[in-house]
């Protein structure tokens, strides 16, 4: 893998994007043995409004712990897309919630759209798992960790009663992106 791969999850505060970042960092570091650093917007910025969580993954030790040029970015809201899609590197990828982000921010990157919130609400019945749908989608899009590592990290994080729900959410997100890419 590249020396340094940077992923940004952005959306509204409370959508579980920090958790999505933590799960991805755990999949990369604890399960796959890579180096990972996770950080997030903090304080007033993180309560409502646009919020972000960043994960840097590398085979080598990671020095600068914040994003420099982002390889892949998720935006769950229009506000987050407008604020955080800047900084995606040329040839990078932007994953958008198809319903929530009507206007695609312009840039030299590939844009993939899937209905993240709608999938969580209508196909799983719980909006709360939208972050796990998004995580599955990001892993399908980037291959930054394996599908199995991602799923295991999700299941390690959630209580027994919610494992099936989250497993379904992760795999729906993963498959929707894979279908678009084929």
């Amino acid at each position: 893998m590249a020396e340094r791969y940077e992923i940004r999850f952005s959306g509204a505060g409370g959508q579980g994007l920090i958790t999505a970042g933590i799960i991805l960092a755990e999949a990369a570091s604890i399960i796959e043995g890579k180096q990972a650093v996770q950080s997030q917007s903090y304080g007033p910025e993180a309560r409502g409004g646009a919020s972000k969580s960043e994960v840097i993954i590398s085979d080598a030790p990671i020095d600068y712990p914040k994003a420099t040029v982002v390889d892949a970015c998720l935006a769950m809201t229009q506000e987050a897309a407008d604020k955080y899609a800047v900084g995606i590197k040329d040839g990078g990828v932007l994953l958008l919630d198809d319903d929530m982000v009507p206007n695609t921010p312009e840039g030299d990157y590939k844009v993939i759209r899937i209905p993240i919130m709608r999938t969580a609400k209508e196909e799983i019945g719980r909006e709360i798992v939208a972050n796990v749908v998004a995580l599955g989608a990001m892993i399908a899009l980037t291959d930054v960790v394996s599908r199995e590592a991602g799923e295991t990290a999700v299941l390690n994080k959630v209580p027994e009663a919610f494992k099936d729900l989250n497993k379904k959410a992760f795999n729906l997100g993963f498959e929707k992106v894979k279908k678009l890419m084929n």
Partner: peptide, 10 residues
Amino acid sequence: DEIVGHMREP
């Protein structure tokens, strides 16, 4: 500082 205090690493 706050950066290292709040970021997560293995």
